[in-house]
Amino acid sequence: MQTMVDLDRLTTKVGYLRRAGIILLLYLVHSHLYNYIGVHAVSNNLNLMTGFDRLFPFIPVMVYPYMSLYVGIFLVAMLLKGKDFLHFVGMLITIELITYPVFYFFPAVYPMPQFEANNFTTRFLQWCFQADVHNNTFPSLHVSLAMGTALVINNRHKKAGKAAILWAVVVAFSTVLVKKHFFIDVMGGLVVAQAAYSLTVKNEYMEKWLNELEQKWQKAPERMAIMLNKLNTDNLQHSKAFTLLFIFLGLK
């Protein structure tokens, strides 16, 4: 009985580790592709500034909700399991696949605001500008990823979804208040979020495919159990290693 409890705890912990690894890998791949596209995009940079954009004040402290996107995505990934997590990852990838071609063919640049970096907040904001690619504003990835994440949460938990949508709205406003995005970037980000959500979460063909994949995945442990039983007699260390591997893959 104790062994089963320990195995359940180990499976839960490894599940968190597996999801964290997938999200960190997505972050890494996205970072390389995002910067590559920014460097190799066509040379004509669009200026989408309007009179409406000039109405928004410059508020450096909004850099904190702006950067909360990365923490928010990571935390949501830790909470979601099974098909919910697959839907979430699929939505993140779909958002990026939609936006990359736009970044490449229609690069837009928001003119960097001039400000004095004389405290932690302004220095942090200055670092955000320096670390980012400046010709990838439309549509806003921050807005699309934040709102897409909120829609996924709302689909699973209505009460938590309301708080998540409010958070996404704050993130959206932060993009224009720290002068990283045009207002049209926000609108574009909302459209991309809804499109990606509809394609990956509210798509009956996607759901059917995931159900079939889940059924095949559930049969895998039976085959793995046979292999483990053969290893159990004389190769205990190998058996433990395979057991840990199967747990990490979600097969046990």
Rank of each mutant, 00 (worst) to 15 (best):
F56Y: 08
Q194R: 07
L228F: 00
Y70T: 00
G72K: 01
N47P: 02
Y36P: 01
T122I: 04
K158E: 07
K230Y: 13
L69H: 05
A41D: 03
L17Q: 02
P65Q: 11
T12V: 10
V14Y: 07
Y100S: 10
Y34I: 04
M147S: 03
Y66I: 06
N118E: 11
L199N: 04
N45D: 10
L151T: 06
L48H: 05
I59S: 05
R9L: 12
F129G: 05
I95H: 01
P107T: 09
P113C: 08
L26D: 01
L24H: 05
Y66D: 05
G148S: 11
A131E: 09
N154P: 00
T3Q: 10
V76K: 03
L24F: 14
A241C: 11
F173Q: 02
I98R: 02
S174W: 02
N44V: 11
G161A: 02
L75P: 10
L7Q: 10
R54I: 10
V178K: 05
V169E: 10
N211L: 13
N203C: 12
I23G: 06
N155R: 15
F103T: 06
A241D: 09
P139N: 08
F56T: 15
D234H: 15
F120P: 00
K240G: 08
N154V: 03
T137F: 03
L166Y: 10
E212F: 07
A108T: 00
Q237S: 13
L80T: 03
L244F: 12
T121P: 04
F105A: 08
L80F: 12
L251I: 13
L55D: 05
M78L: 15
T12S: 11
A117D: 03
K180M: 12
I23D: 00
Y34W: 14
A77P: 00
A163D: 08
R156K: 15
I165Y: 01
Q2N: 15
I184W: 02
V170T: 13
